[in-house]
């Protein structure tokens, strides 16, 4: 028979005395507060403070260097009667809606293609992220050259192919200008959709597809009844992010057209910048920026509702 010596546990009295901070953090409520604190501080500094500051500015008549007085909702009334603002609202809605639809369609198509096995898959996946990685201003400058009425490589290509016999005024024609900025936005946004949806596709078990195929489902039916329902929650989240980003887009339009010609591509953000910075009317600039908020809020609430519904389903 073997006896093992079991070391006696050290008495409580001999353990080192814990400090008050350690004891406090043993309480989960305090620990949660401490862990959340950095996030709360960051959100407060970079999200809440600018937002509240924007609201405070919008109800005053503040100009650069001139503290304002409270004017209630006068700025919102002025903005409502501003013809250029109404054009900007319309343009922003059209810009966001069309760009998001195309980004979703092309992103989904690309994701499905990339979900297959083929040679050079990893390289291709990395390559399509390029538009998303390149700084927006740089890539937009390249697009500006491509749309340049005089030096456009697109026009040159179309002309050489015999498709056109005169130059297309991409950024000079009001309708084409809006289409052009949408094209650039779609080009930049498709990789985000594609990669996010690809991640979603890879969570879908291949067994489900195999089972559907055994039951006689064709490719489209498998996509319609298996892939799409399972991908919907991810799709809605991606769309939510995209709508918010596209609605508040600034760099792309500012570099390509500056909101012209004749406000044909004027968006919320470019107009807010013109008024707030160019004219020094900070309160009116803040008002225009804040006008995005209720529209976005409705969009976000509706989308979150659908996301929850899709997840529950």
């Amino acid at each position: 028979m073997t006896f093992t010596t079991v070391a006696a546990p050290r008495s409580y009295a001999r353990t080192p005395r814990r400090g008050p901070v350690t004891r406090l953090l043993e309480d989960e409520r305090w620990l949660a507060i401490v862990l959340l604190l950095p996030t709360v501080v960051l959100l407060g500094l970079f999200i809440a403070y600018p937002f509240i500051k924007g609201i405070m500015l919008s109800v005053t008549d503040t100009k650069v260097g001139v503290p304002g007085h409270f004017v209630g909702l006068q700025n919102f009334v002025n903005v409502w009667h501003d013809g250029i603002f109404r054009v900007a609202v319309w343009n922003t809605c059209i810009y966001t809606a069309i760009a998001t639809i195309f980004k979703l369609a092309l992103g989904l198509w690309l994701a499905v293609l990339l979900n297959n096995n083929f040679k050079g898959k990893a390289f291709t996946r990395a390559f399509i992220l390029l538009p998303f990685i390149i700084p927006t201003v740089l890539s937009t400058l390249a697009w500006k050259w491509m749309f340049d009425p005089t030096f456009s490589v697109i026009n040159w290509g179309l002309y050489r192919l015999g498709i056109i016999d005169h130059r297309i005024n991409w950024l000079g024609d009001p309708d084409l200008a809006l289409i052009s900025v949408i094209i650039v936005n779609v080009w930049r946004g498709v990789p985000f959709f594609a990669i996010s949806l690809l991640a979603g596709l890879q969570t879908i078990s291949p067994e489900l597809h195999e089972a559907a195929a055994i039951d006689g489902a064709r490719a489209w039916q498998r996509f319609r009844h298996v892939t799409w329902p399972l991908l919907l929650p991810v799709t809605l989240v991606v769309m939510l992010f995209s709508v918010i980003q596209t609605f508040a887009d600034f760099q792309l339009v500012y570099v390509l057209t500056g909101g012209g010609p004749a406000n044909a591509t004027q968006l919320f953000s470019t107009y807010a910048y013109q008024i707030g910075i160019g004219t020094g009317l900070l309160s009116q600039g803040a008002t225009i920026s804040l006008a995005v908020f209720p529209v976005l809020l409705v969009v976000v609430i509706v989308q979150l509702f659908y996301i929850r519904k899709a997840e529950t389903h």
């Binding site: 749309f147 340049d148 009425p149 005024n169 000079g172 024609d173 012209g260």
Partner: peptide, 12 residues
């Protein structure tokens, strides 16, 4: 005029 001028910036 050159119709492209509708979209020109200061360097165009």
């Amino acid at each position: 005029c050159d119709p492209g001028g509708l979209a020109w910036d200061d360097s165009s």
